[in-house]
Write a protein that binds this DNA or RNA. Structure first.
Lengths: 113, 113
DNA sequence: CAGATACTTAGGCATATGACTAACCAACAG
DNA sequence: CTGTTGGTTAGTCATATGCCTAAGTATCTG
């Protein structure tokens, strides 16, 4: 199996910061250079770099340098890992809730152990 | 674009830690007390408490103290916020990829590398 | 009431995170 | 070659995180 999971830790960590989510949102509209990504962030370029490195480390984005311009783009599959984890939990929860509901119905006027 | 979801920060932050995800996973099987949650964690109780507080602060779990036992349970709706954000991004990404594909198809014989 | 149980609070400590400035390197542009 | 642009590296700093122990509080249990 391709262990394409650098880790959920890094993924969620990456998404936990609004600036980084901002970068991800921006990249949804297509690839962008470092300075393009930096512009709306009210933050020094090195700080943006740090965020980008973290995002890249988490596997969420990928970047490539051509000439003196580094272009960043999203790694579409990456988000799936996080989504899958969350979705699995939700499914389990809902199943649990269903069972609870069922149980409550079953023991509605009748209490047994 | 009103993107003001302060809870997403806390939510993803909460999910970024394996112990906390472990707690969430465990709670999928139903409510549990603090010490039940602590047992598999190889960690002192106060540390577990901290994680629980963070989880509760993020809205992912809810807890209630009866007698001397605090019972924690998942807040099923909470995860949806995170899931929605991720899902939205994925949709945007896929749409973008579709457009890219389309574009590539449209310019297929026009300009080759 | 005495002791055990189940947290809870307080305080401390090491490392991680997120931000900055200053200085540096590598392409262009002229 | 010189200057500008785009990015990178290095070093600093403040705060946050994650863990701990020790000592507290509040319930039960006998």
């Amino acid at each position: 199996m391709t262990n394409q999971q650098p880790s959920l830790d890094l993924m969620f960590q990456a998404l936990a910061d609004p600036s980084r989510r901002g970068i991800v949102e921006r990249l949804c509209a297509g690839p962008a250079s470092v300075s393009e990504l930096a512009q709306p962030l009210a933050m020094s370029l090195p700080s943006v770099m740090q965020h980008l490195q973290l995002l890249e480390g988490s596997g969420l984005i990928r970047s490539e340098k051509v000439g003196r311009v580094r272009t960043c783009r999203l790694e579409p599959e990456a988000l799936s890992a996080a989504e899958t984890w969350i979705n699995d939990r939700r499914v389990l929860m809902e199943r649990k809730l269903d069972r609870l509901e069922e149980y409550l119905r079953a023991t509605a006027g009748d209490e047994e152990d």
